[in-house]
Design a protein around this nucleic acid. Structure first.
Lengths: 201, 201
DNA sequence: TTGCTTGTTGGACGTTCGTACAACAAGTGC
DNA sequence: GCACTTGTTGTACGAACGTCCAACAAGCAA
C-alpha cells in the first residue's frame, strides 16, 4: 500500500522560486502589513521553518521578490519591443504602451514596489539594489531615445525626465485608477516623447 | 510638599497632535516596519493605552499623520508662492523649486507617504482620502497653469502631466539622492513647464 | 473643601511574530 | 536493501504585538 508522501523534495532553485511567488501573492492580496514568515509559508503550502532555510528574513525575501517581479516586468516590456519591430519611434511607443497596461500597470504589482521602497531607506544593500534597477531603467530608455535621434548630450536629462514621468503616471494610475485612464496616461507620455524627440532635432 | 504630577492633562486636540507628530517621527526614523502602538506611545512620552483612546488603530493614526504632514507640505508651497509675488510664471517656478527642496523633498517625508500608500489598496476610506488629496494637487497646479495662459481645454492634461512628473522626480530623488540632484530635478521640471506653457499659446 | 468628569495610566490578556532546533523522511549512491 | 545526505516538518520558546479595562488623579465647578 503506497501512502501519500508527507512532502515532496524540490530543487533548491524551484523551491526558492515558489516561495518568491508566494510572497508576491501575499503582497498583492494583503499588502505590506500581511507579509510574515508564516503567511508566506502557508501561501506556498510549506512549513514555516522552510522560509528561514532559504532566506535570511522577510526583508531578504521581499527584496528577491522585487527582483523577480521586476524581471517579469522587463520581460513584458522586451516582448512589447520585439513585437514593435525595428522602427525606433514605434519601439518607444511600444515601451510606453506596455508600461501602462497589465501586467506592468497593476495594483498587485504596486504592493511589491511599495514593500520594496519601504526598505530602501533603512537597508543600504537594498538601496543599492534600487539604484542599480533604476539606472537600468534609465539606460534602456536612453538607448531607445538615442535611436530616435536624441543627441548624446541630452540623453541623460531626457531619460530622467521620461522615467520620472512614466513612473509618476504609473504610480498614480495604480493608486487611483479612476483619476485618469491608462489610455490618457499613454497619450500624455507619448506627447512628452514627441517634445523630447523633436527638441533633439 | 508638592510632588511632581504623575501626568499632565492636555487639550484633546493638542494631545492628538502630539501623537501625530510622534507617529511622523517614528515613521521617519524606523519606516513602516517600526510603527506600532507602543513605539508611538513611547516616542510621545505617553502610555500605550492612550493611543487607542484617540485613534481607532495604527492605520487611522497613519492616515491622520499623512494628512498633517501633507498640510505642512502645502503650507510650505503656499509660502513659496506668496514669496514669489504675483507674476504667474514666477509662481510656477516657485512651486517647482519648493517641491524639490526641504522640507518637501526629504527621505523622512517619504516614509510617511509610503506608509500611507501601503494602506490605499486595502482601505476604501484611505483610498478616498488619497484621491481627494491628489485631486487637490492637480487643481492647484491647474490654477497656476491657467494663470500662465494654458487654455482651459488643455488644463486637465497639463496638470496630470506635471503632477506626475514632479511626483516621479520627487520620489526618485528621495529614494536615491545620488542618481540626480535637486537642482537637476528643478531644471527638468521647469523645462517641462516651458513646453506646456508655450504649447498653450 | 468637596464632588464630579474624564484624560491617563499601567498591566493583563490572548494572539501572532521570528527564530531555533531536534526529529523525520525523500531521494541518491552504492 | 542499506546507509547517507539533506530538504522538510512541526513545535517550543521568548518577545512584541493590539486590545481592553479597572483604577487613578488632574482639573474644574460649586
Amino acid at each position: 500500500m503506497s501512502a501519500k508522501p508527507a512532502f515532496t523534495r524540490a530543487e533548491p532553485d524551484a523551491r526558492r522560486l515558489s516561495l518568491i511567488e508566494a510572497c508576491a501573492r501575499v503582497l498583492a492580496r494583503d499588502g505590506v502589513a500581511g507579509v510574515s514568515v508564516r503567511a508566506i509559508a502557508l501561501e506556498a503550502g510549506v512549513s514555516p521553518g522552510l522560509v528561514g532555510h532559504y532566506f535570511a528574513g522577510v526583508d531578504a525575501l521581499v527584496a528577491e521578490t522585487y527582483a523577480h517581479v521586476e524581471a517579469q516586468v522587463s520581460a513584458a516590456i522586451d516582448a512589447a519591443l520585439a513585437l514593435a519591430g525595428p522602427d525606433p519611434r514605434a519601439r518607444l511607443d511600444a515601451y510606453v504602451t506596455a508600461s501602462f497596461r497589465p501586467p506592468v500597470a497593476s495594483g498587485e504589482l504596486l504592493a511589491t514596489w511599495i514593500a520594496f521602497w519601504s526598505l530602501v531607506r533603512s537597508r543600504p544593500d537594498i538601496a543599492r539594489q534600487h539604484d542599480e534597477q533604476y539606472a537600468f531603467f534609465r539606460a534602456r530608455l536612453a538607448g531607445l531615445l538615442g535611436d530616435c535621434g536624441v543627441p548624446q548630450a541630452q540623453l541623460r536629462y531626457a531619460a530622467i525626465t521620461l522615467t520620472a514621468l512614466i513612473d509618476g503616471l504609473w504610480l498614480e494610475l495604480c493608486l487611483s485608477p479612476q483619476a485618469f485612464s491608462a489610455a490618457e496616461a499613454i497619450e500624455i507620455a507619448q506627447a512628452a516623447l514627441d517634445t523630447v524627440i523633436s527638441k533633439g532635432r
